[in-house]
Nucleic acid binder design. Structure first.
Lengths: 224, 224
DNA sequence: CGGCGGCTTGATCGGTCTCAAGTACGGTGG
DNA sequence: CCACCGTACTTGAGACCGATCAAGCCGCCG
């Protein structure tokens, strides 16, 4: 391993005691920017706008997505508290970003982040790790899109249960339409599939956005 | 841009003057490793094997892919001369890699690359750029997978024509099965769709792996 | 010439989309 | 507190696209 751990050396500048354990690019960014509130469905940035800022979710949730000319929407990722997004290779954004629910987002000038990476090897490494992790996620997402509807939904539920750190019960922040556009399905197919999983006692749906995983092994079986 | 205009330079070892202008992580890597030949369909590495090396295609072509338990295969990317692959966040590979045709690949110890990035800001930046570019590609690939069969094939042809730097005529290195697994279609659908595009005079197929783009605007119309 | 692998073509099947109602829920105003 | 509304979600019937199953074809090499 090389990404993390080994952060225990002196960070760099004049900083005295760093937090005793691991801390990431996320913390660095947090120190450089301002927390801004965004309303539900508020646009954070649009595709092909200048990518002058980098973002980190503090509370709430964010979707990044691309549109095709006829209006089809592909959601690339959901970003939950702690996640960084909006960091681009080129000078314009390749996705749009919107708040899924009311959210607070830390906004940092990208030039600051890049400059910090130039000065500090440690920041540079974490910068790369962040992007590499996002790449890995994107590849898993691609794999998802070749599966059947049931498999996609199962994979999605497992991913969310992992990321929301919920043992048995999830409260999803996103709508069925968001889920559908993430999974490359229609809203009807998502709904039907959830109903179907409920019928099989694999999950329960106490509310439309609340999901209880009753049978993880069954979901895992569908996952791969 | 940063990938390429590719291979006209001296292959590796005793190189003196570096290209006068910009040169990438690719060149750096080239200086650190050894060129190894791989036979068609030869395994370069397997999923979940230790990721101790980083690779760069000199000649030939490489596919990286993931398998589902039931044998379905998703090709994540095709790597052509000049491309880097196999660089991972964790300590094991998340994809398998195989040579599509007889290929020569530069192999470098990953620890060398990472150490170079620690020492040299410039290498660190190029390391990040490489990964960020791959991320962008992966996101485009995801977008592809929500399209219709015709649109996927059209997008694929345009991508390949771009990357192979062929004006009107492409010689594809990969089989129909490879294309199918990249596009999330079956081999039959790929074949039918190509035939169909030929019928519409959008392309011509002088040989099964040679494709002439007769009507780029029509392809572009399908592309988005 | 025969055989084999890669590709094409055809006929049918099935999963997901589409179109169309119907239902539950949350918020707002009476 | 309830009636109303709009939005989100569910459910149903039918169509369609791509998968599947099954031959055939072509080029290449023995």
């Amino acid at each position: 391993m090389f990404t993390m751990t080994k952060m225990e050396q002196v960070p760099a500048q004049g900083r005295r005691l760093p937090p005793p354990n691991f801390h990431s690019l996320l913390d660095t960014i947090e120190l450089m920017g301002a927390a801004i509130p965004f309303a539900r469905n508020g646009e954070i940035y649009g595709e092909s706008e200048p990518a002058d800022y980098v973002y980190k979710v503090l509370t709430g949730a964010v979707r990044t997505y691309k549109l095709l000319s006829d209006g089809r929407r592909q959601i690339d990722a959901f970003h939950l508290p702690g996640d960084i997004f909006g960091l681009e290779l080129g000078d314009t954004h390749t996705c749009s970003a919107e708040a899924i629910s009311d959210s607070t987002i830390v906004v940092v000038k990208r030039s600051l982040v890049m400059a910090a990476a130039e000065r500090n090897t440690d920041v540079a490494r974490r910068l790369w790790s962040t992007t590499a992790a996002e790449l890995q996620r994107a590849q898993q997402h691609t794999l998802l899109l070749i599966k059947s509807a049931q498999e996609r939904v199962a994979t999605f539920l497992l991913e969310m249960s992992e990321r929301l750190c919920a043992e048995g019960s999830l409260e999803l922040p996103m709508s069925r339409q968001d889920i559908a556009d993430y999974l490359g399905l229609t809203i009807e197919t998502v709904s039907r599939t959830l109903t179907q999983l409920q019928g099989a006692a694999t999950i329960a749906l106490p509310g439309s956005r609340r999901i209880v995983l009753r049978n993880r092994p069954a979901l895992n079986r569908l996952n791969d």
